[in-house]
């Protein structure tokens, strides 16, 4: 049976924890709003990009097309770009992304492919290091970055393209958590290279028509080559932003339930404390009364 002092200490410590989780929840809520705004602001660019790429894709000559679009004909070396947070305490956020990437990595290894991993964010590297440590070829650290910008995505994009051109991998896939809502973040895999483009021509008469009238300056293949590189960066940027929003959302709900659990624990401990105190008083009273009766 813990003494009264022990109980008092525990109550105080749980209360302090609750204050911290409460504060973290509120910080996450504020950051979430900013992250969501950033994600919304980035959407028009990505949409236009998709549209133009779709149009180009429908018209461009596939034979001479860039390897970024049609692949380099091989399917041997896979690069998994795993985006996670820099910090923990956000529920299953980091674990879920890592789990998805790990499952895919194991499936690829089992079918005889070579797997390389590039981690963006410290938590992913920590999580995958134990069993896939030797596969991690590159780590990008965004710890010092407060608000992810296009420049961060560009840096990763340049690295990816350089690696692809040096023939270090054949297929690249991006792993990140898509932001569905504050309580739901869906770990997602997105193939970056060869690019998966929206098929504008397939069965969509209106889009194909709109695409048919454009003139291209310089010629289509050149624009397509340029845009494909841009597109990788745009996709990475989107991944970063979605991840940032998801991370804050996950942290918010994790901290919300932590705060609630702390509250419940405090209630339980307080009842226990009061009972104990009352028991002590009763015991003392009995001692006094029986002492008085004995006289």
């Amino acid at each position: 049976m813990p003494s009264l002092k022990d109980l008092r200490n525990r109550i105080a410590s749980v209360k302090a924890t609750r204050k911290i989780t409460k504060a973290m929840q509120m910080v996450a809520a504020a950051k979430l709003r900013r992250a969501q705004e950033a994600a919304t602001a980035a959407r028009p660019y990505a949409e236009r990009m998709d549209k133009v790429l779709g149009n180009l894709n429908a018209r461009a000559n596939r034979e001479g097309a860039s390897a970024l679009l049609v692949g380099n004909g091989k399917d041997q070396v896979h690069l998994l770009v795993v985006m996670t947070a820099e910090r923990g305490l956000c529920g299953g956020f980091n674990t879920n992304i890592a789990k998805l990437a790990r499952a895919d990595a194991q499936r690829l290894v089992a079918s005889g492919k070579t797997v390389k991993i590039m981690t963006v964010g410290r938590k992913g590297a920590d999580n995958l290091r134990r069993d896939l440590g030797k596969n991690i070829v590159e780590r990008v650290d965004l710890r010092g970055v407060r608000q992810v910008g296009f420049a961060n995505a560009d840096e990763i994009g340049q690295k990816l393209i350089a690696m692809f051109e040096a023939g270090e991998f054949d297929v690249a896939t991006l792993y990140f958590a898509e932001f569905k809502s504050v309580i739901a973040q869906k770990p997602t895999a997105l193939q970056l290279i060869p690019a998966k483009l929206p098929e504008a021509a397939a069965g969509d008469g209106k889009k194909a028509e709109a695409g048919a009238v454009y003139e291209y300056e310089p010629e289509e293949d050149k624009i397509l080559g340029y845009l494909l590189k841009r597109n990788i960066t745009t996709q990475l940027f989107r991944g970063l932003l979605e991840n940032a929003a998801s991370e804050q959302g996950a942290r918010m709900s994790a901290m919300d339930s932590a705060t609630r659990n702390a509250g419940e624990m405090i209630n339980k401990l307080t009842i226990k404390y009061n009972r104990q105190r009352q028991a002590n008083i009763t015991k003392e009273l009995i001692e006094i009364i029986s002492g008085a009766e004995a006289l």
Partner: peptide
């Protein structure tokens, strides 16, 4: 500043995609 030269655009321009 188009990659193949400066271009001035008024309403009713022909559809073009340019870098």
């Amino acid at each position: 500043p188009g990659s193949e030269g400066q271009m001035t655009i008024f309403a009713g321009h022909a559809p073009v995609v340019t870098t």
